[in-house]
Design a protein around this nucleic acid. Sequence first.
DNA 1: AATATCCGCAACCGCTCCGAC
DNA 2: CGTCGGAGCGGTTGCGGATAT
Length: 375
Amino acid sequence: MHIASPLHNSLSPSLAFLLLLCLISSLISKMRRPPCCDKSNVKRGLWTPEEDAKILAYVANHGTGNWTLVPKKAGLNRCGKSCRLRWTNYLRPDLKHDGFTPQEEDLIINLHGAIGSRWSLIAKRLPGRTDNDVKNYWNTKLRKKLMKMGIDPVTHKPVSQVLSDLGSISGLPNTTNQMAFINKDLMMSNMPPTKTEPSDSNKSMVEHTQEGQVHSWEHHIPYQVIINSENVQPQVLSEAASSTSSSSSSNLTQLGSPQSYSCQTPQAQISPPCSSFDWSEFLHSDSFNWSLNPPSGLMQSEAELSDNTKSNGHDMQGAASEGSGSGSGAVACGASMEYQINKQCEAHSFVDGILDRDSEIRAAFPQLLDASFDY
DNA sequence: AATATCCGCAACCGCTCCGAC
DNA sequence: CGTCGGAGCGGTTGCGGATAT
């Protein structure tokens, strides 16, 4: 039986459906935040020298701030957001426009391994570099380098391990989870760090690096400061993970899993618990300075770092720079971090560390890895 | 020499954060 | 406490130059 209606009489079903779609999309578009400026009436694309000059003149006279008013005041037919981007990414006088140094590469890889793709935080450790610079450099150069080396640039794990993890997802034994459990237990045991002396050959490697010389890629890969689950406290991991935006969660999630490039046993990396932790704080603190003694140019000034250093009543940067005297939770955490960072992987290269760890895992759980590959 | 493909970088987009009200 | 708007962030896109065919 066909039920007649005005709609059926006047509109075909497909047309009605289209109208409904239009209505829905219209409603959705109205619910969304309006654009910051009328995009149809503003210039887009590459900036001309004249436009740059206007921005520079405006900032010289008025300083930065309230970018929405800048186009009007500076006589530019651009979106304020676009002006801000042009200034922060290109026109700022303190920006470096030359290539990245090997030390900067090291730093980027280390930080990416520790905190993932939080480019702004990483860029803050690289004076003269913007988050856009770092992000582009990572995407175009460093990611490919790591991949060539058989290291997954997302997880900073060997590709073989990533593959085994992937295999585990499909209902097979999950070695990652099991390892996480094991390491969690180890960390919870709250054992003090055990010093491990690097071998003579390893010492020479460290000294070699500390001279700040430029090495081949294989040699200047970061092998000393690798943050992993075993040298970060459980609560640190959970707080770091919880403070992470979903878009960049992968690496912090990985921090919660056994990601280690270390040559040390897991127990040797356990440190006393910290009461609180903040990645931003940590990165701005001296605790995260590298034992390979990067050039002074890599170190930010106190003023530049002063923002974001206070949290939960502790100034980690100050505490860390003061040494081990104060005894607060943050200080203990910072000192512990510094100790562990300095002890991290002194013996091996970055790649060696990863491969060693891979071998350890394979040796410890051969049946699990075999199973996970069995698909 | 012409064309296709690759690559790097600048810019844009959409989202979240955060302070002011 | 909720809303609004500016600022900041990370991911993505697209252009232009470099390189390969």
